[in-house]
């Protein structure tokens, strides 16, 4: 037994492969985590409905693929590449807009009236919205896991006989998530609205005294967070090829964990947290066993929080009063 374990642990190719898998799913988790962390940063609300918003995005993506005639068994083999690309493009436009609009609307209708209420009120409302979303998802795609058309070839981009596999699907995930994260960073760091977002997160009263329309800024934050979840949901569906009305729960939980791990409210922290969780998930599954994945992820979370209670990148600046 022991020598086999030993040999496996030092199989570098396998380790590298697990890292590719881990970083890919980590990038997806990060995209969802950004929505949690941005909303928390600005209104101190843990938006429990965010994972289910992500789920509804996948449902819409499936509906769009069905409309393009790609969801029926065998349809993909006869479909032209143009149709497939059109369907993907359509998803990458419509789903983020849908998720952004839905997120913003929920804020306007549900959370905004509770802005000055005790913290627990919007939190419980968010749990309520989460259930409503799940019911909509159940109604939309049914109670079972649903196959999402596997339209992206799983061809190895590193060559057919290379030891490591980095496929078109991996590239899709990286190609969507990384530019989005860069765009978000540039937006938050350099644009006037992005700076207003940071200012509102750090001191809403002072932000209002600067002439910032904080409600508009909060609305924009929900839009941006929702759009990121929308992009994430399309890429997830294309990458994993299974969706269900329950997928928001676990993915949302991992993403929320990533946000906390990185330091909730901190944008680079959410990305880092997502990547760490993706890696822990992949390595844990490969070397310890899939049964233990969740336990390992949360054990890592607890250990990190014991040593860094405000997360990996949280509260880098102590505030003087």
């Amino acid at each position: 037994m022991l020598p086999i374990l030993f040999a496996e642990a030092f199989n570098w190719t396998n380790l590298q492969q697990q890292c590719i898998t881990g970083l890919t799913s980590g990038a997806l988790i990060a995209l969802i985590a950004l929505g949690y962390t941005m909303v928390y940063g600005i209104v101190e609300l843990i938006n429990f409905a965010h994972g289910d918003l992500f789920m509804l995005g996948s449902c819409l993506a499936l509906t769009i693929f069905t409309a393009f005639g790609l969801a029926q068994p065998g349809a993909i083999d006869s479909a032209s590449n143009v149709t497939i690309l059109l369907a993907i493009a359509c998803c990458l436009v419509a789903v983020p807009i849908f998720c952004a609009g839905l997120n913003r609307s929920v804020d306007y209708v549900v959370y905004r009236p509770l802005r000055t209420a005790p913290r627990l009120a919007p939190l419980v409302s968010a749990i309520g919205v989460s259930f409503i979303f799940m019911n909509i998802g159940l109604f939309w795609v049914g109670p079972q896991d649903v196959n999402f058309p596997d339209v992206i070839q799983d061809r190895n981009l590193l060559g057919d006989d290379a030891n490591l596999r980095f496929t078109l699907k991996n590239l899709l995930v990286v190609g969507v998530t990384v530019p989005l994260m860069i765009a978000l960073t540039v937006f938050v760091k350099f644009t006037s609205l992005g700076k207003a977002m940071r200012a509102t997160a750090q001191n809403p009263t002072a932000a209002r005294l600067m002439g910032i329309n904080t409600e508009f800024v909060i609305g924009t934050t929900f839009l941006v967070g929702g759009a990121l979840a929308g992009f994430g949901s399309v890429v997830y569906a294309l990458y994993v090829n299974t969706i269900s009305y329950q997928m928001g729960f676990q993915n949302g939980l991992y993403a929320f964990t990533a946000a906390v791990l990185g330091g909730i409210g901190n944008i680079p922290g959410a990305v880092l947290g997502g990547l760490v969780i993706g890696l822990v998930q992949a390595l844990g599954t490969a070397y310890i066993g899939a049964t233990w994945t969740s336990a390992i992820v949360f054990a890592v979370l607890i250990v990190i929080l014991v040593f860094r209670p405000s997360g990996l990148l949280g509260a880098r600046v102590r505030e003087k009063v």
Binding site: Q202, N203, A206, L209, V321
Partner: peptide, 12 residues
């Protein structure tokens, strides 16, 4: 207004 307690944006 320069508010009471300054209310500087600490991480800007």
């Amino acid at each position: 207004q320069s508010p009471e307690g300054r209310k500087i944006f600490p991480r800007l």
